[in-house]
Amino acid sequence: MTGLAAAASTTSLGEAVQFWILGTVAVIGALCTILMKRAVHSALSLAGTMIVLAVFYLANGAYFLGVVQIVVYTGAIMMLFLFVVMLVGVTAADSLKETLKGQRWLAAGLGLGFGILLIAGIGNASLRHFDGLGQANAGGNVQGLAALIFTKYVFAFEATGALLITAAVGAMVLTHRERTERATSQRERSQARVRAGKQVPPLPAPGVYARHNAVDIPGLLPDGTPSELTVNPTLRARGQIRDVSGEALTGVKELERRSEDWLERDSGPRSSSAAPGPAAPKEEAKK
């Protein structure tokens, strides 16, 4: 991609355009990674940044690494991340409020200082000219890498293999949980539930209407208040519960009335008994 001429000092205009556009995307992705409230969003932003980096690798003549970056990093590792986020972070609402005193200022100051130092260091270095990879990649990038890996870096390569094995075993050891007692049977669990006097029958279903019996809407108790038992705790933790006990009910009533008008159907005894019926106790309770 780059010029074959040795010791060039500029790249092609196309690469420059690509750098400025994708570089901006990468920085935005990185910022989103650290600023997004939800871990899933962070992971996706990071994946975006990584794909941009993969393009940059390709632009810099590292074809093998570019592909590996997409396949291994963005594909495998980021999916692993997402998997763990789903496994772990679902109920963990991550607030961005700082709890350690002064930590944010320290982080900002240090980060700024460190960045300035790095950039000053790079700016100080005399890196006007570059050789380009034309010669090194002449026999093919993958072949060149392979030649180095299996000759010059063979010991590091072997050690990396050992490291990977160790990591795999380590992950297994860390996550494996030895079952030390017999699993309780369903019968035993139900007996325990009866003995403890907790909710013996199945939990009540969410929703009370045919149109609103989605899992994210809590069922209403006879007095019109929503029941905590009817929705999944995960949804509650995520804050994804829609409450229809109050304003939503009036909205529904409004909608029904308008549809009646639109159908030019006199509000018959059926609809009046269907819609406002259950809502009436609720309104009484409000008063």
């Binding site: 990185a30 650290i34 963990a92 991550d94 930590q103 944010r104 320290l106 982080a107």
Partner: peptide, 19 residues
């Protein structure tokens, strides 16, 4: 350098271990 710094700041700021 910019990305590295952003990452470092993120390590310092975020509390979620996964992030």
């Amino acid at each position: 350098a910019l990305l590295f710094t952003i990452g470092a700041a993120g390590v310092l700021i975020r509390r979620n271990a996964i992030v």
